[in-house]
Design a protein around this nucleic acid. Structure first.
Length: 405
DNA sequence: CCTCCACAGGAAGCGCAGGAGT
DNA sequence: ACTCCTGCGCTTCCTGTGGAGG
């Protein structure tokens, strides 16, 4: 096939909508299905807690617990979507601001997120946090907005910035003449409360719901439901669905991972012009996800971890901490980079082990000391990713003998 | 049984950058 | 524009330790 033909077939496939996908958006992370499986109880409780809003009165604050991919965010957005329909029918002034505290990163940006939902313009920098909070509250008061704020990954905010903002928000109602603020806090960390200020605990966790992990069987049904809407009929084998559920759910029933895996599998199948998604595609996808994860973590590594990792890769054998460190020091001298101490290097090696890029094992050679055996878990072909386009590091791998001879 | 190697890894503190308060 | 505060990467200094060799 010449290039023209290849492009023709790609484009005509896209136009005709053939291939596997019927509606790829169903597999996106922010998609909320029409029916939320295995979360009847949680949906019911959230609904009950929020229902006073329809009479215009304040609802209790709510705290949702559960590991990643257990449907916390989906369940709350699901209920709010329904609630919104009802509220609009009744001409209520409502707003359901959503902010992911980990993505936002700071109290300031969480407040900016909230303000955006209230049609309030906040400069992206320059104001004190308390000033932004004041503006948000006065907007709510002026319009009499019934506000339910969803704070996703709120544990992150509290761990990094304390519970000041939560405290301000939970007691804001005392000062509001009209409108109110209710909060749905979503936490991945079951021990989240330990980090909270006791003043905040009592008001934030008026109601609590725990989201247990999905079982592998439940994951299968969730995937089947998504597959039905995302793919053309008969485009995915049930064996492939089962494998997705088993592979992704093995650890702790993470639906997001399972759906991600199915999406990547489908993309691979689609690109191969295959009309059916098979177990092989799933296995390839799992490998690709893992490779992408490694490539990603390699590229974002700081310089010293990169040098240490290159030393380990270039040497190839099992090394001890002392051997790695002396080779590392030589390399630093030759490429003109300031070196870190052995203590720090040892710490970096531990970090690399945690990410899963090297394996380490403490061993004792008796009279000849106690050290760590260090081995690379990644392949030499990953060296390009480590080096990226850093000319200094490039010289290390282009001329290994010169730098390590 | 004791010694002593070659580190592991804890504790404390330092300098810096970047954000908050004024 | 300025100080103050905080988190982070790092260094310095330190104590702890499994087991081969004496």
């Amino acid at each position: 096939m010449n290039q023209d033909d290849i492009l023709d077939s790609i484009f005509s496939k896209a136009i005709s909508g053939k291939g596997i996908f019927k509606d790829p958006s169903v597999l996106k992370t922010d998609y909320i299905p029409q029916q939320l499986l295995f979360r009847d109880n949680q949906v019911k409780i959230i609904g009950e807690v929020l229902s006073p809003l329809l009479r215009g009165s304040k609802c209790s604050n709510l705290l949702l617990y559960g590991k990643t991919g257990t449907g916390k965010t989906a369940a709350s957005l699901y209920v709010l979507r329904k609630l919104k329909e009802k509220a609009i029918e009744r001409n209520l002034i409502i707003s359901f601001p959503f902010s992911n505290a980990r993505v936002a990163g700071t109290e300031y940006r969480v407040l900016t997120d909230i303000a955006e939902y209230l049609d309030l313009k906040i400069p992206f920098t320059g104001l004190a946090v308390s000033e932004v909070a004041k503006r948000v509250l006065s907007t709510i008061e002026k319009k009499g907005t019934l506000t339910v704020i969803i704070l996703d990954e709120v544990d992150y905010l509290v761990k990094s910035h304390g519970s000041n903002l939560l405290y301000e928000l939970t007691r804001a109602n005392e000062r509001l003449q009209s409108g109110f603020i209710s909060i749905i806090g979503i936490s991945n960390d079951l021990n989240f409360k330990d980090y909270l200020d006791p003043r905040v605990i009592s008001s934030l966790s008026e109601e609590e719901i725990v989201f247990p992990p999905y079982t592998v069987n439940e994951l299968k049904k969730i995937l089947a439901q998504r597959a039905e809407n995302a793919f053309h009929s008969n485009s995915i084998s049930s064996a492939a669905i089962n494998l997705c559920a088993a592979l992704a759910g093995a650890e702790h029933g993470d639906a997001r991972r399972a759906i991600d895996l199915m999406r990547v599998s489908a993309e691979i199948a689609d690109r191969e012009n295959s009309h059916i998604l098979t177990e092989d595609h799933v296995r390839t996808a799992l490998q690709k996800i893992e490779e992408d994860r490694i490539t990603d973590s390699l590229k974002t590594l700081p310089i010293h971890p990169k040098i240490l990792l290159l030393i380990i890769l270039l040497t190839g054998d099992e090394l001890t901490t002392g051997e790695v460190y002396s080779k590392y020091r030589d390399a630093c001298k030759k490429i003109g980079v300031g070196e870190v101490t052995q203590r720090r290097a040892s710490g970096i090696l531990n970090e690399l082990q945690l990410i899963g890029l090297i394996s380490t094992e403490v061993v004792s050679h008796g009279r000849y000391g106690r050290t760590k055996k260090i081995q690379a878990l990644i392949h030499n072909s990953n060296m390009e990713d480590i080096v990226s386009d850093d000319p200094i590091l490039k010289s290390m791998i282009q001329n290994p003998s010169k730098n390590f001879g």
